[in-house]
Nucleic acid binder design. Sequence first.
RNA 1: GGACGUAUAGUGUAGUUUGGAUAUCACUUCGGAUUUCUAAUCCGAAAACCCGGGUUCGAAUCCUGGUACGUCCGCCA
Length: 590
Amino acid sequence: MELLKTKIQPLIEEAVEGLGVDSSLVGRMLQPSTGHTWPPVCDLSLPCFQFAKKLGMAPPAIAELLCEKIGEHEAIQEVKALNGFLNITASPSWLAQQLLSGGVGQRSDDERREVLIEHTSANPNGPFHVGRARNAILGDTLVRLHRLWGDKVTAEYYVDDMGKQVAVLAWALENMTEREVETLLADREPINPQWAEKADHQRVRWYQAAQLRRKDSADSEAIESAIGTLVHASEHGDQGVLDSFEQAYQPVLDGMLETLGRLGIHYDRFTKESLFVTNGDVAALMKELGDLEINGVADNGAQFLDLGQRGLKGKTEFFYRRGDGSSLYATRDIAYHRWKWTQCNELINVLGEDHRLQAQQVGLTLEELGERRPEVMFYSFIKLPEGKMSTRRGNVVFMDDLLEEAQAHAAEVLKERRPDLDPATMATIAEAVGTSAVRFNIISVSPEKGFTFRWEDALSFEAGSAPFVMYSHTRACSIRRNVEAADPSFITQPPQIEPFEGEMPAGLVELLRTLAVHDDRLSKVVKEHRPNLFANYMLQLSMAYNMFYRDCYVIDQGKVNPFFFAVSEMARTTLKAGMEALGLVALETM
RNA sequence: GGACGUAUAGUGUAGUUUGGAUAUCACUUCGGAUUUCUAAUCCGAAAACCCGGGUUCGAAUCCUGGUACGUCCGCCA
């Protein structure tokens, strides 16, 4: 709790110095109590173990001594020695005053940054499946969290508009008939009629059929060489070929973006990979790389960097140029990164764990060129209970299907709970609940941990899920509506808040404490790229609000309590902003 | 074979960067609250740090050796 720490640190330092020990460590040692217990036993805690040796005293005794030395302070409710810790609890009325006066959460300009976040960047060759969605959901959440913090963010999608995957798609659309495609895919699950008009679902079948023919047909060699020619042309910047590629993939990409849009995921900019080939950046880059100390040349003229000399373990040769002089994917990625650095002062990539090595190579090369390396948030792949997700084996869950299912499930729950609602409202709420639950289910797990997709988890609407948070928010909204009905002046001209008299109910204290650590948590989450911690915070905030709701009646016997209402409103706006930062729909009624 | 990542109650997870208290939250199980400012709620109980060694007053956290799972090791993208 930084809010409290800045106020009372001098007080503690003085007390520590009074014992005759160095107080310079106090700043580092004075921490929120360890988060192992919820609710926390206190707001700030000073472990006294390090002083024990110097003073020749037992830590609990030191804590006792310090405890006696700390004087009264308006911000402190209680100082207590316990098990060798000096525990400080903030005064709830002081917290309330700080929070309600609006002084909390102001960011100075030098804390705001221009951030470019690249995420998703999936090959436009087929519909989004749940595996790919982890990238988009994590990336978009990071974008939103940075915006909540006050950063200026550009969300960017790097479009893979050249190379083999798109070439296969373009070749298939040009050379195969629908009948041929369907014959080849006869033993696969047919296209879901619901998506029959959606280009990503349509065209992926051409792609899949072509993949089969490439492997396993009489003319596979001829096909391979035709595709090879296309790839080669695209890598040399042949505009005609690039245009035909675009015609092939753009409708697919549009379909994918439609799916993402349903989850509230949007981009500020799309940058095409081919740009860096056609504008000469890649050629210039390869020339520059060739002059580096660690450059090497293979027998056929291909070139690489020996990154072993820069500490890379395992495979040390990093090829950036083929024997025929053309560039590789990673080479273009480096050119792309140099360009990205001209657009921002902080760069974040969201990448699957399969990109770890390549990200190392790109990072080391950028440093070799005198650039900074980007920060990367890696995530591990989503599996199905049956095993790895694979389009080839038909073992996939499409996002489009998941979202439909989630919506339907939410509609079912709603029908029982709110039979009074009209169908249109019900559909809107069900859509919001469904998509929010799907996002939350994925966000709330640490990115680097493995994730197994389970329908029952994704569609769970109980405590610990998005609807739990959403529900707390609707309660706060409902209270606001009731207050407005009881006395509109509370909304139009909020009254002066009198300090709270007497002892605060537990739920109120808990809510104030939780609101008070909002900025601490957000700051950590944004700096360390860990959206799941904020999801966790939102659950805590919702729980705290529910406790407050239990203990404090904003409207009691028709009369509005101004203090409770002010706290409720603060929680409501904090909940709303936090939900938006996680991409959850902040419904006002559900 | 090599590089990297992960391992916490029956299940899913937080905490590990910076060692410190009774290890978080939920599902499940068991028990309780309700003529409610929206019960998709609240209160209570039971239940876990992969295995071995080391450092330390103190290890889920740091070091080391195993085991299991995942990812990568293309002049592919």
